[in-house]
Amino acid sequence: MDWLSIFQNSFTQMVGVAAVVYCLAALGVNIQFGYAGLLNFGQAGFAAIGAYAVAVLVVTVGWPLWLAIICGVIGSILFGLILGVPTLRLRADYLAIVTIAAAEIIRQVARSVTLNDYLGGSDGISGKYAADWYALNPFEGIDFFVLRFSKNDLWVVLNGWALVAIIALLTWLLMRSPWGRVLKSIREDEDAVRSLGKNVYLYKMQALVLGGVIGSLAGVIFAMAAQSVQPDNYATTLTFYVYVIVILGGAARVFGPIIGSMIFWFLLVFISELLNNAVRAGYISSDILSTDQIGQVRFMLVGIGLMLLMIFRPQGIFGDKKELALDER
């Protein structure tokens, strides 16, 4: 068993590119679901808009990166408005259905054969989206004890976590303000908030769009880190992992998505590395488990872990048990 390599990979992925991307997407969902109670199951769609805006506008059209990012943000705002206008007046479950369908529509359009020349079909678009941005990197790669990043990954991760910090700070500022109070109240009871003279529809729209914009930034980082976009990276599984992260960390907690994402990716990588090493070293007979089954088994184990968490700590890592108990009254 190569324990150093197991821990090295696990801790590196704990703060790695995937953790940053999922953390950003989760920060958005936390505003929508955690604070405002909106069931947005289309976060993958928002992320796809951010990613494709960067890919298409930089590679195909040849615009500068910053302009492409702004377009991605505007695109996600429009997407949020389109989803919100018909559904936010209805009950919460309608939003869930519409958003999950809309995100799938975006993915299917992106991988469609007809638009192959523009969006690259199921192969997506690869290219040097962010060469200038990578050129700004003053750091070399890092290989220190359990952390190991290449030069480019380190730059992505540093910038990504800085973005996470800014968004977490904004979330914290917003949620301790009267605006955040209205949002949390809407989650509890819309009609009560309406009866007190607040335009509930406007607040829900703001929350949906704000969370969506943050989700699109997750896509932007994802595209810049991978230097490519593939439509199937933006399938519904992304959204579901993001929900797992939010619930794991504790919904409606500023640090919930951050810690949730770290734990999620640590566990996922740690379990697969551990099993891989155990199988190779012969601790687990290859009759029981072969190395190419580990990818599936790790999700089962993470799933079991989550079930245990929900049983013994249903409020998540940061949640308040007292708050949760109120639901049962």
Binding site: D189, D191, S195
Partner: peptide
């Protein structure tokens, strides 16, 4: 919400307190 802003504010038969606030 506009009715409430105009000064006609109501309560509900089944109370609507915001539990987690």
């Amino acid at each position: 919400y506009r009715v409430a802003r105009d000064g006609m504010v109501r309560t509900f038969q089944l109370t609507k307190v915001l539990s987690k606030l």
